[in-house]
Design a protein around this nucleic acid. Structure first.
Lengths: 285, 285
DNA sequence: ACAGCTTTATCGTAATGCGATAGCTTTGTA
DNA sequence: TACAAAGCTATCGCATTACGATAAAGCTGT
């Protein structure tokens, strides 16, 4: 009975195998993969943006775990302080300890220290929302965000993930990726039309990225959120790898494309360049 | 009973069964606690604020795991995208996915949406660093931070944790906790002298908290960081439980205590009150 | 090139997590 | 108020899963 189902090798086994219905595709044939850890993290990720707390049953449903497993994992996470439990309603919420991870990430990354003062001064000078996003595979993830007074899109916060192809910061990084990497990322990308103006045609996008390289910065108008436009320029690490981008997000109500191109383009380029300069000697991966 | 037999009906098993009794040794008393999850999260938390990536051996050392375990957990976390591995140096770093957790936490909490516009307007009007911290047991954890231009303490970022007793936001919350809760928290607190001016005497602190209640806000000067002073007022949930505080942090070079008390005190009180007002109907736990 | 150290791969073992189930608490409805 | 339904908690035997020792393979530096 040991056997461990080595894929198609179990002629001796009485044809059971089948309905093990492993919930996680990755669990099956990777002997180094610790399933319990994956499940536990899945529980944490089950907490979406809902304002109400989750009951055990709902957590189980969202993660695909059975009640017993959900019970064990919520219990463990509560003990460790990552979840909080309302003893009265018996529901769970994420605890402030979840912020620890962001802190560790930001502090362990020179990008944060270097970019913060620059982001702030650009924001204050132009009174527009400024952010720095890093590329994570096919997504652009907001790492720093300083909202302006007039346009506070509060559904954006640190950690927000958007498909790179349709946001300015994402495109700024994509444009400077080595060709084969750009191709690889776009191959993995799932092109979805987020607004009527989203570019979902691969060829169009590639042409756009080429133009971005010529311009030195990326511009996007209403391709991710209606009413928003953004301008972004790439940030490079010490090996000239594009790892992030600094972007200004504003409203189509305040700027025309032409104005933005003319005025904000040079601003983001300069700011991003200043950050890259301070990142000499840093190797990201 | 005996379910689980759907898979591979093996009656052949001689039912020897191991005596799993006894032998608890030092294993955890808690049968619901999933050790693997705890260890995996310990690995994530092993990444401190160092800028250099960690090798397997160092991770093992920091977490107290042996090499094999560290290997499994780093592997798993890398697969899941939480760690990144430099294939050349074979070292690990936290990946941007770590920011997901912060995003979920912030978005799932009405405090964030409500506080952001207020924090921004206070910051812009006074040109001082404004933040909102939530109480997590004995710690105050920064949840929102808008640094001013003139004082950018970049070693503070979202998620920074400070002992509640020595920071203004922490004291503002402690002061309004119900007496028995305040006592319980302080009982658990480890009083450490962070600067020469830190209050570490319990009685002095309690008197200070009582005064905070009278004043309506907390003031702290150089008790956590030299050269810094801060003023903070409590934020309440719908059940009038103090859950967080809004604070202004500034430099002793710009303000005297008297000026700050007179001018900033009312500001933070008003801002915090406005936030609390919008939090009616919200029950935190 | 060799020695020392770190990382990767392998594998037998038993401890750990699994999941069914029964008892208990809360919520909803008449 | 009582009853039913749903959700949560506690328990337990079993086998799957994680454990950790070890050997092989890669680096690093003298």
């Amino acid at each position: 009975m040991r056997a461990k189902k080595e894929i198609g090798e179990d002629a001796t086994e009485p044809s059971d195998a089948g309905p093990l219905n492993g919930l996680d595709a990755d669990s099956r044939q990777d002997p180094l993969f610790v399933n319990s850890l994956g499940k536990g993290l899945a529980v944490l990720q089950a907490f979406g943006s809902d304002w109400d707390a989750l009951g055990l049953r709902e957590i189980a449903q969202r993660t695909g775990l059975n009640t017993s497993a959900a019970q064990r994992f919520t219990h463990t996470l509560t003990q460790l302080g990552f979840l909080r439990k309302d003893e009265r309603t018996r529901r769970y919420r994420l605890g402030p300890r979840m912020l620890n991870f962001a802190y560790s990430y930001l502090r362990a990354n020179p990008l944060y220290d270097v970019a913060i003062p620059i982001v702030i001064s650009v924001r204050d000078e132009w009174q527009e929302t400024v952010n720095v996003s890093v590329l994570d595979d096919t997504d652009a993830v907001v790492a720093i965000r300083m909202p302006s007074q007039r346009r506070i899109n509060s559904n954006t916060a640190i950690g927000r993930r958007m498909p790179a192809y349709c946001v300015s910061t994402g495109r700024a990084v994509l444009a400077w990726l080595p060709p084969e990497q750009r191709k690889a990322v776009l191959d993995r990308t799932d092109f979805v039309r987020l607004t009527p103006r989203t570019t979902i045609d691969r060829a169009t996008l590639e042409a756009c990225l080429d133009q971005v390289r010529i311009d030195g910065f990326a511009m996007v108008e209403e391709e991710a959120d209606l009413g928003e436009m953004a301008v972004a320029a790439p940030i490079f690490d010490g090996e000239r790898k594009p790892i992030a981008a600094l972007g200004i997000t504003t409203s189509t109500a305040y700027w025309t494309m032409e104005d933005a191109r003319e005025k904000l383009g040079p601003i983001v380029m300069q700011a991003a360049t200043a950050i890259s300069r301070s990142l000499q000697g840093w190797h990201a991966f």
